[in-house]
Nucleic acid binder design. Structure first.
Length: 799
RNA sequence: GGGCUCAUGGUCUAGUGGCUAUGACAACUCCCUUACACGGAGUAGGUCGCCGGUUCGAGUCCGGCUGGGCCCACCA
């Protein structure tokens, strides 16, 4: 019962162990309380928890802890994403190997064992140390067989619905990673390049064409100009000779050629960019492939064959210069699409890839997005904007090593795909045999496994299923749709969007009711953190230096969806709060040792405190109900610091210490107010700073309330019998007087303890009446021996 | 180029049409008062980015502008 001192460094981990041992956050499969289920974001196992994680996971934990205290049976699983390219790169780095230099089997098993024994446990420990109230026993990883089974099952379902198709198509391709990629994995990056004016011949006429991609010349299949461009209208129907390669290509008109750009003439190469692809389709032009998937020039590049893109570009520019085919080369900076994981320029390559058909669903997608409750609401715009801009079906093949395999084999003779049977899942076609002996269409008996793996988002767009299917099937309808998807705003376009799509396609409903979108943690100056800038702030260091509670407190300062600057001073603020809570509690609890829990008529100041408390409870509750944890926190901050600590405790002290002079009933009344005020303060703070509030609760209140943890105790409610407008007015007046006395003492540079022989208050008759209700407390707080009243309009104080 | 978002004392920030615009940090002045000096009481510091409009009333709503951020498009 003695609150000694509080060292978060040792106490926080102890408290976390206690939660674990007592299963405080365990989901109760048998309970009939309303369920609140969360589609927890599975973070990509990347070594260490990032400060951005601590920011957004803390924010989701605030509202989830609130829901738990409000009486929900909380289903809060924890998954990790350790599937796909990001994981491969991490393993390559930590184990100093290269996937392409070793057998696939060996690499995959290295990934799995390293994850299981080294990376994941360390990583999970970081999230635990943040004080998240997850039920960590409900755990999946996006690469485990449970997830593979579900992912493959739903892929087969898509295939059966006719939504998964395999097509020879220009696919976005990363020549460095040697894999197809999707629209969402691309980012813009500025590059220095050169704009080259090169000469095509149309008969004897010299045509100047500007290009940044001369290495695509061997794949040039046409030249275009705008139909209204008079400079070139005489070229209609003619052909042009491609420099260096000398093949003739048609000269065509199309409105997509911009007369303002370059010379107004543009070459079309399959495939330089998206317009090239549109032209190829529209004019049925041949498909030429200048380089292959690994970024090396192909045979059509003739003497440049085997060179990589950059080498070929330079060599061709040099050769054209030598042959006087290059008029001018001006350096430019332009933005190009690069693969976000490696920064390589994205190319288009023709290959056989699996796609999920969804462009036909745009209207439905918008409707689904509108049915979700977004917090904050404007985040919906990002979803709608994304849907509006979709132009590709979802490319889901990845030419990687570690990932969920496609459950498919192909007939070696007719390429007919053979899908695994659902009861055999999960399968790895590289290891397992197809479920049939003979190809149903051609009768061949030899099959070839699909070597590609599924895009990691194919699996992670099923996280609500991965989570609930860990539970017995009879609970699924109660858990799904889930209550909440918390996540950061940067992945609305893929994770949130894809999950919404999958859920509606497979189950005919949205995957959740609410989405809580968090912002980003930026550096102290509002800049994005990055290794290259050297401005990374590590949450582990903050927890060590301050505490997990102060890290969480910082996360509660900004409103949902807002980015926050990561500043030391905010951690200091949290640390001060922890300290203040501890000391205020120490004081309070020491005066509650003999408190009997009986309630009787309250002293006016005590009633005043409980009115303020009622208001704080109402505000915090309303705020938490709409996920406005920052407003809830602000309300309780004001109550705790101003009303309780700065004013009330100073006022009630004298009654608590001196019951002989002030009366035992008066002391007891103070105890009543203190008991409820502190308890509610702790409870309202509990979702934000769960460690310190638990420490205090366990020391004093746990026994009284017969609960093992504050986090499963009942959320405070407004108590109507405390409402007392007269007491509130009287208390507010007393605070005005007290503040004025303090101000004058401060101006006279005398201690607040200095006695005042007679305090004269000028006020109205009604004010005097109200103040007389709290006269004894006011005397004690101001150190006034006597208080005299003079009639007057504006309340003033002299001594 | 389009969409969204943000702009409030030196710094960061609250603010949901309505008295004198919130709080924190920093600064300054004081106070070692038996919960806390990791504390307390005060003081100073703001034409709420700019221009216009709606309104009895605008930091708040509307339009335009300027400047940041994010997403998308463009990329010959």
């Amino acid at each position: 019962m003695v609150l000694d001192n509080y060292d978060p460094k040792t106490r926080e981990p102890e408290i976390e162990s206690y939660w674990e041992k007592e299963h405080i956050y365990a989901f109760d499969q048998k309970s009939d309380k309303p369920i609140y289920s969360i589609d927890t974001p599975p973070p990509t196992v990347s070594g260490k928890m990032h400060v951005g994680h601590s920011f957004s996971y803390a924010q989701q934990d605030f509202v989830i802890r609130y829901k738990r205290m409000k009486g929900h049976n909380v289903f809060y699983p924890f998954g990790t994403d350790d599937n796909g390219l990001a994981t491969e790169r991490l393993i390559e780095k930590t184990k100093k190997v290269r996937a392409r230099d070793m057998p696939r089997d060996e690499f995959v098993s290295l990934c799995l064992t390293t994850l299981e024994h080294e990376l994941r446990p360390q990583y999970l420990a970081d999230f635990r140390r943040l004080g998240l109230s997850c039920d960590f026993s409900i755990h999946y990883t996006t690469i485990d067989s449970h997830s593979q089974k579900i992912s493959q099952r739903e892929f087969i379902n898509l295939y059966e619905m006719g939504r998964a198709y395999r097509k020879d198509a220009p696919a976005m391709w990363c020549p460095e990673c040697n894999t197809g990629i999707s629209q969402v994995e691309c980012v813009d990056q500025e590059f220095k390049s050169s704009f080259n004016d090169i000469i095509f011949f149309s008969g004897q006429e010299k045509l100047v064409i500007a290009t940044t991609r001369p290495e695509l010349l061997p794949a040039c299949v046409a030249v275009f100009f705008h139909p209204t461009d008079k400079r070139y209208s005489h070229l209609r129907g003619k052909t042009a000779k491609v420099p260096l390669f000398n093949h003739e290509v048609p000269i065509l008109e199309d409105t997509r050629a911009d007369p303002e750009k370059g010379t107004g003439l543009v070459m079309c190469c399959t495939f330089g960019d998206q317009v090239d692809m549109e032209w190829q389709k529209a004019y049925n032009l041949p498909i030429m492939q200048a380089f292959s998937g690994n970024g090396k020039m192909t045979a059509i590049a003739q003497k440049y064959e085997g060179q990589n893109i950059r080498e070929a570009r330079k060599a061709m520019i040099d050769d054209m210069k030598a042959q006087e085919l290059l008029i001018r080369s001006s350096p430019i900076t332009h933005t190009v699409n690069v693969h976000e994981r490696c920064g390589t320029e994205v190319e288009f390559i023709k290959s056989k890839q699996w796609f999920i058909k969804y462009l036909d669903m745009k209207d439905h997608m918008l409707e689904w997005g509108r049915k979700l409750h977004w917090y904050p609401d404007h985040m919906r715009n990002r979803y709608e904007n994304w849907v509006g801009g979709l132009q590709w079906d979802w490319l889901i093949s990845r030419q990687r090593y570690s990932g969920v395999p496609f459950p498919i084999w192909y007939c070696t003779k007719c390429e007919n795909p053979v899908l695994a049977k659902k009861e055999d899942l999960p399968v790895d076609p590289l290891k397992h045999k197809p479920p049939i002996e003979k190809c149903p269409s051609c009768g061949s008996t030899t099959f070839e496994p699909e070597k590609d793996v599924l895009d990691t988002w194919v699996t992670s767009s099923l996280t609500p299923r991965l989570a609930i299917e860990l539970m017995p099937e009879k609970l699924w309808p109660k858990l799904y749709p889930m209550s909440l998807r918390p996540q950061a705003h940067d992945i609305i376009t893929f994770w949130l969007f894809n999950t919404t799509f999958r859920s509606n396609i497979h189950y005919g409903k949205n995957p959740w009711h609410d989405c809580l979108i968090s912002g980003w943690a930026l550096d102290p100056h509002g800049k994005k953190m990055s290794k290259s800038k050297g401005n990374i702030i590590e949450p582990q260091v903050i927890i060590d230096k301050y505490s997990a509670d102060s890290l969480r407190y910082w996360a509660s300062l900004s409103k949902p969806g807002d980015d926050a600057n990561t500043q030391d001073k905010d951690f200091v603020t949290g640390q001060k709060l922890v300290n203040k809570l501890w000391n205020a509690s120490k004081f309070t609890v020491s005066h509650l040792a003999d408190y009997d829990g009986k309630e009787e008529k309250l002293e006016t100041m005590d009633a005043w405190l409980l009115i303020k408390l009622n208001k704080a409870i109402a505000e915090a509750t309303d705020a938490f109900d709409v996920y406005a944890y920052n407003q809830a926190r602000a309300s309780i901050d004001i109550f705790f610091w101003q009303h309780l600590c700065d004013n009330y405790l100073e006022i009630v002290k004298d009654r608590l210490y001196n019951p002989e002079q002030r009366g035992t009933r008066e002391r007891h009344s103070g105890q009543v107010a203190l008991y409820h005020a502190l308890l509610s303060v702790l409870k309202i703070y509990a979702p934000i700073i769960p460690h310190i509030t638990e420490a205090i609760y366990l020391d004093y209140y746990a026994e009284k309330e017969k609960k093992k943890s504050i986090h499963i105790s009942a959320w405070p409610t407004v108590n109507d019998k405390w409402n007392n407008p007269e007491a509130e007015k009287a208390g507010d007046l007393a605070i005005t007087v007290l503040a004025d006395v303090r101000k004058q003492k401060s101006e006279r540079k005398i201690s607040l303890k200095t006695e005042i022989p007679t305090l004269t208050i000028t006020c109205t008759k009604e004010e005097e009446k109200l103040l007389s209700l709290v006269l004894a407390d006011l005397k004690a707080a101001t150190q006034a021996k006597e208080i005299a009243f003079i009639r007057g309009e504006n309340i003033t104080v002299t001594f």
